[in-house]
Design a protein around this nucleic acid. Structure first.
Length: 285
DNA sequence: TTCCGGCAAT
DNA sequence: ATTGCAGGAA
């Protein structure tokens, strides 16, 4: 009689086989340097492998260690991040590096210590544990979720992570945690190109609001303007220049130009988040 | 729950 | 024009 553990054992065998068949020799799999692995995890949050490849190498060449990143100018860090998206991740990574450097420079390996660092949540903490330290971890992210839903919840809809997580936990191997999760990631990534995205049946799955014309797009444009002003040797970005640039962007796209007060509000929010500092009618990073 | 970037594939 | 991405924080 087929027990639940038999089903799980067959599942594990299949994932191992598929993982071997579909193995991706990604650059960040060729290092065990915790900092380098951490940077890869941070970059890969909501960002495709194809875009991180190249940028990860360039980042490590420029900021080769926790100490180097901690000592770097934040604006340089932000500039190096451009194109990866979600600028907050760069700020969090920089701040976390400063915290780790203050604590002696060793990247922690416990989930508790990792999650205390800005920008590191349960998934990233588990990724660092598994890939850098080869330690047991419950790594539940989109590719892993895809595999479990496809294999173990083939018909279910609106599946909560609370139903998936115990299974992920039950599958954590005694040895080669790293290889197990590589297999899950590679099989999951392949599944999404092969069958209708199983992750869509997760309760976690959410559609994102439209980017074009969004507030998000304006924020990103302002960050670029701040970096350009700095690059040009200016004391900062003036409200007038920001209003003009954003106005041109919006008008060119057939949208109404934002009011100066709105642009000022966006800049002040960026300042409050630590992207820049305000002095009078100038914002500098 | 909502917000946060940017891009390639479709 | 839509989709989804090795998620985290407020």
């Amino acid at each position: 009689m087929a027990s639940e553990s038999d089903e799980l054992a067959r599942f594990i065998d299949k994932v191992r086989r598929e993982g071997e068949r579909l193995y991706r020799d990604l650059p960040w799999r060729r290092t065990r340097d915790p900092y380098a692995v951490w940077v890869s995890e941070a970059m890969l949050q909501q960002t495709q492998v194809s875009r991180v490849d190249g940028r990860w190498q360039r980042w490590l060449a420029r900021f080769p260690s926790v100490e180097a990143l901690a000592a770097a100018d934040q604006a340089d860090v932000l500039a190096e991040w451009q194109g990866l998206g979600y600028n907050r991740r760069a700020l969090a990574l920089k701040r976390a590096a400063e915290a780790v450097a203050d604590q002696g420079g060793e990247v922690p390996s416990s989930v508790d210590a990792l999650v205390k660092l800005p920008g590191i949540g349960p998934a990233t903490a588990a990724g660092i544990r598994a890939f850098a330290f080869d330690l047991p971890a419950v790594y539940l992210e989109t590719n892993v979720r895809t595999v479990f839903l496809h294999e173990l919840f083939p018909e279910a809809e609106d599946v909560p992570d609370s139903a998936v997580r115990p299974l992920v936990e039950a599958c954590v191997p005694d040895r080669d945690v790293r290889g197990w999760y590589y297999a899950l990631l590679d099989y999951g990534a392949w599944l999404k190109r092969t069958v209708p995205n199983p992750s869509r049946r997760s309760r976690t799955h959410a559609r994102q609001s439209r980017f074009e014309g969004s507030r998000r797009q304006k924020r990103a444009a302002l960050v670029r303007l701040l970096l350009e002003a700095r690059e040009a040797g200016l004391p900062g970005l003036s409200l007038d220049d920001a209003v003009a640039a954003l106005g041109a962007q919006e008008t060119g796209a057939g949208r109404p130009e934002p009011a100066p007060a709105d642009v000022e509000g966006l800049l002040d929010e960026l300042a409050a988040e630590g992207f820049c500092q305000r002095t009078g009618l100038f914002w500098a990073c």
